[in-house]
Design a protein around this nucleic acid. Structure first.
Lengths: 192, 192
DNA sequence: CGCGGGTTTGATGATGCTCAAGCCCGGTGG
DNA sequence: CCACCGGGCTTGAGCATCATCAAACCCGCG
């Protein structure tokens, strides 16, 4: 039984203790070193993972070979290539650890088994997908409507504890700007 | 019974004729004039709509009062504010018709009734959300990794029949550029 | 101690915006 | 039927934002 997972689940769906026990049995706790790839471009994503400890980035590679960060995920978030996972098609995505991490892994078979037994869990997974959707929607809007500096401020405000854990150049990539320009933004800020 | 809807559904989930008949009864066919708002900022979204005919835009308003187009949707697509609809929370979005349109409207109550009777339809709705997710993901990547001209080419390539139906300045907004700049891109293109 | 990855700084240049004006064209009223 | 209007598209000039490249710097780590 895992406390964090249970807490997360029960904020989405009310479940009995028996159901929680049943369900916990289908997750595999695994530990990974940083810089490990959980998924590489071309592979089919075979997991949804709940993060107990650590920090993960997901990204695409652009046509100059540079990373474009799609998401960061840390404690109490899910990480996966949702689309590749559900359609069992090759992914365009890389998922790589930024920190040593501890994950609860859910395979497609395990997920099917759980949902078969506890159909109301559909709700939790739907919420998970919706949260990702909302996040992409906000970021797309931000990237179009906001300046780089405003995007940075927003990022600091939304994720106050993350910036210390993430190298600058990755934050820059997430914001859609060059590492050099982020450095200048920070300099301007510190002068006030 | 509606042919287009049935066709769409059965490519997602195999259903019996009885199920299709049952299900069709829960959709309301409605006709709207262009420039009608299906949803405005602050309202709770009370529908998911399948488009039989016509063209719709969804957008946010930025802090200068300009539209930022999130999506276009036309025949055989769904339109809704997925998040507002499911959480029954006020939306940040506008949904407005670009053309006179014919829609099949599904209310939260009707959706619940259908899913209660035909649980396997969950799959179709999950696919709908996933397609939106994939689309936002691709656009976010494109907006970061690609130049305005590349984004425009990609748009023409992905939706070859849409550009004729959509005013330039809306396409510009969708691409995240000014109407003037799109005009220049088109001029450059035509010179080749 | 030296190495290497990350960050900073400067100089230069491209991309795309803003503002203002003109143009084209379909719709509307006289 | 024409004149006028208004919205969308184009064009030009000037400018802001942000990228690129190169060099220096910083600092933890082997």
């Amino acid at each position: 039984m895992n406390k964090e997972l249970n807490q997360y689940i029960t904020t989405c769906v009310p479940l009995t203790d028996e159901q929680l026990i049943f369900l916990n049995g289908y997750f595999q706790k695994k530990i990974f070193k940083k810089k490990t790839f959980l998924l590489q471009q071309g592979e089919v994503c075979k997991f949804e993972a709940f993060i107990l400890k650590g920090l993960v980035k997901t990204y695409f590679i652009d046509h100059n070979g540079f990373e474009v960060i799609l998401t960061f995920a840390c404690e109490n978030w899910w990480v996966s290539d949702i689309i590749s996972f559900h359609e069992q098609k090759p992914s365009k995505m890389y998922i790589e650890l930024i920190e040593d991490s501890e994950l609860l892994i859910l395979t497609p078979i395990a997920k099917a088994a759980i949902l078969n037994e506890i159909p109301s869990l559909e709700r939790m997974f739907r919420l998970m997908v919706q949260r990702h959707l909302a996040s992409y929607q906000d970021r797309l809007f931000g990237n179009i409507a906001l300046s780089a500096e405003e995007r940075y401020e927003l990022f600091l405000h939304k994720y106050p504890n993350l910036p210390q854990r993430i190298p600058q150049h990755l934050i820059a990539s997430y914001l859609g700007i060059s590492a050099e320009f982020l450095s200048r933004i920070r300099k301007r800020k510190s002068k006030k």
